[in-house]
């Protein structure tokens, strides 16, 4: 279930930011798909966030703020630019929770378990970055649709549409890797 993070209490930047370190690194690695780039991304994120901490509005979502900085840093990096340039946006981009033709999980999907973890990870890696990020923010970071919308900077309807298409693409990718039609 996707849940919202509590608004942060005033404290030092370190007190607020370090508990997010592991999660941010994991997300950065999924985006950059490379350890060195992920470390650069996280380091740049912390430096930028520390510099801009004075402009952070207390009471707003600190976690979403940090993820937004990381994501924007990634998108302006060489890897990020390359990743976004190769992903054409679908015309249903702004649909509200749009379902696509292959959005019906088959019973075979039940076979996705720990034995198929590598296969699933490979399928996630192959997702276009716009789909990968919303899927990970929802499923791994357990962000609410609103929090994802704040992080990614798109309307909630777009978040729902991207999530729906990410899941459908993931299922299709898994089926393909399992050698099923």
């Amino acid at each position: 279930m996707c849940v919202s993070a509590d608004p942060p209490q005033p404290g030092t930047f370190e007190e607020l930011a370090m508990p997010l370190f592991g999660q941010l690194y994991n997300f950065a690695h999924w985006l950059a798909q490379n350890r060195e780039e992920a470390e650069d991304l996280v380091q740049e994120t912390y430096v930028k966030a520390l510099r801009g901490f004075g402009s952070f509005q207390p009471g707003t979502n600190f976690r979403a703020w940090m993820y937004r900085i990381l994501r924007n840093t990634f998108l302006t990096s060489r890897t990020g630019l390359k990743a976004t340039m190769t992903v054409p946006l679908d015309e249903t981009e702004n649909g509200h929770g749009a379902t696509v033709a292959d959005d019906q999980p088959s019973q075979e999907a039940l076979l996705i378990d720990r034995d198929h973890q590598n296969l699933l990870q490979a399928a996630i890696e192959e997702l276009p970055v716009q789909f990968r990020e919303v899927l990970l923010l929802c499923e791994v970071e357990e962000m609410s649709y609103q929090e994802i919308a704040d992080t990614v900077g798109v309307p909630i309807g777009t978040v729902m549409s991207r999530l729906s298409r990410a899941r459908a693409s993931l299922r299709a990718g898994v089926q393909q890797k399992l050698g099923r039609p």
Binding site: F13, F21, N26, V42, H116, L120
Partner: peptide, 26 residues
């Protein structure tokens, strides 16, 4: 399955220390 597979990458202790030092005591 996505949640289990998605929590995949862990930063090294050295990298964590390096960032911690950069922002400590602000």
């Amino acid at each position: 399955a996505i949640k289990a597979s998605g929590a995949r990458f862990t930063p090294s202790p050295e990298f964590r220390n390096q960032i911690q030092k950069k922002i400590a005591g602000k």
